[in-house]
């Protein structure tokens, strides 16, 4: 464990908690893409199946359980409890255009052709594009609540910090996972446009609104 990975995990945890609290406190999931949240629940489910097969550390197990629990709780709040506030008209990204190619790629490019490994690879690839429905929704509505931008910022920063974690681990431990690194770079690049808007607008106290 290094400072970048710990900071990344805490940023990821913060994002998940911020989103859950935003929906719970405001009793509304306006501006939130339910499709992205379903993709994240799928990412955690396919990646953390090793909860059943191997124990790495209390920290590892605890975080995985929290991530999975919060992901499904968020999906439940969006599609069941606060369904009336779900913005289905704008949350129209065709997720099958993400899941199918990612599923195919996981079969073609992986470290080992075993079920657990292919599911892990699928989850790594899926996570790198899972935020697209959310970014698409914001581009369609042309704006985002400030709390939602903080959620997105923490979520984007987490994988950027993981990139530094992988540099650190390659340098000090010789650890190196090309699949995770390439997917992590793609994932972070997808946030760059948002990062620019976040820094130039939200941090200056303005509302995040896109040129319609």
């Amino acid at each position: 464990m290094n400072i970048f990975r710990l900071a990344g995990d805490l940023s990821h945890l913060a994002a998940i908690i911020i989103l859950l609290l935003k929906i719970w406190k405001t009793r509304s999931c306006a501006g939130i893409s339910g499709k992205s949240q379903i993709l994240f629940a799928l990412v955690f489910t396919t990646r953390y199946l090793d909860l059943l097969t191997s124990f790495i550390s209390l920290y590892n197990t605890f975080m995985k359980v929290v991530y999975i629990g919060c992901a499904y709780a968020t999906v439940y709040l969006i599609y069941m409890k606060f369904k009336a506030t779900y913005d289905g008209n704008h949350d129209t990204f065709r997720v099958e255009f993400l899941v199918v190619p990612v599923g195919g790629l996981a079969f073609l490019v992986n470290h080992d052709f075993s079920p657990l490994e292919i599911l892990w690879t699928f989850s790594i690839y899926l996570e790198s594009v899972a935020i697209l429905p959310q970014l698409f929704l914001i581009s369609k509505t042309g704006e985002a609540e400030t709390i939602t931008t903080h959620y997105l910022f923490c979520l984007g920063v987490y994988r950027a910090l993981y990139l530094f974690n992988w540099i650190w681990r390659f340098y000090f431990e010789g650890f190196f996972d090309m699949i995770a690194i390439v997917a992590g770079v793609v994932q972070t690049i997808l946030y760059c446009d948002f990062f620019y808007l976040y820094v130039t607008k939200v941090l200056k106290g303005k509302k995040l609104s896109l040129p319609a």
Partner: peptide
């Protein structure tokens, strides 16, 4: 490059 694919990351 020494490639190790241990799954100790979240």
């Amino acid at each position: 490059w020494d490639h190790i694919n241990q799954k100790d990351e979240l």
